[in-house]
């Protein structure tokens, strides 16, 4: 019972935070709220028995993402203005509301066939998951099953993940690394080339 209460409270906080993010225009406040959103979601992951995911979300989602967004904000902010305020948007709100409502209704309709939350007889729980729970410790000697799967059974997947992060790092460096040191004339030439 207490689990359900904590679950509902955290989900309500998450919903309130996300709506506040949509309604605010001060980007600094929005980025801070997004950090809170990530931290709350880390709490929810702990309630749903996923401490490894919670650690990662708290460190990477609430930590690194927020720092990256703040750094970007500092780079794109107009000089001599303390905050970056979002410009009023010209889109029609009702059209996106309709799209979102229809998509949401379709997804809720899809939950009719999902087994009840926490059902031990759900198909997800009765197939391969049992194998890993029973054999991870004897086969790999690692008591944490998530670590055993991540580093041992699916070690090559993790290697691929590292390749993805490396690619992203290279792309970020290519996009913004050392650009600001170039003289303005060269940059103008480059833009003319792009246009041609």
């Amino acid at each position: 019972m207490i689990d359900i209460v904590i679950d509902i409270t955290l989900l309500a906080f998450l919903a309130i935070t996300s709506v506040a993010i949509v309604r605010m225009t001060n980007l600094f406040a929005i980025v801070m709220l997004f950090g809170i959103f990530s931290l709350l979601s880390a709490g929810l992951f702990v309630v749903m028995d996923a401490p490894d995911v919670a650690f990662t979300e708290a460190a990477v989602g609430a930590g690194i993402s927020t720092v990256l967004m703040l750094a970007t904000l500092a780079l794109v902010k107009k000089p001599r203005e303390p905050f970056y305020n979002e410009a009023p948007h010209a889109h029609r709100a009702w059209l996106s509301l309709v799209v979102v409502a229809v998509t949401g209704a379709a997804l809720v309709y899809g939950t009719w066939d999902i087994p009840r939350f926490g059902d031990p007889d759900a198909p997800a729980q009765t197939h391969v998951a049992r194998y890993y729970i029973e054999n991870a410790l004897p086969e790999t000697g690692v008591p944490n099953i998530v670590t055993a799967v991540l580093a041992s059974y699916r070690g090559f997947d993790t290697l691929g993940e590292v390749a993805v992060i490396f690619t992203a790092a290279v792309a970020v460096l290519l996009l913004i690394g050392g650009r600001r040191s170039k003289p303005a004339v060269e940059k103008k030439d480059k833009r003319e080339q792009d246009e041609a």
């Binding site: 949509v22 979002e86 948007h89 889109h91 979102v100 949401g104 939950t111 999902i114």
Partner: peptide, 27 residues
Amino acid sequence: IGHYNYWIVIVLMMVGLYTVISRGNLI
């Protein structure tokens, strides 16, 4: 009781989608 979790998650999902569609600021 068995499905409220999924429904609130879908609400969060749609709030995110709405932000992507309706807001013009890239950040």
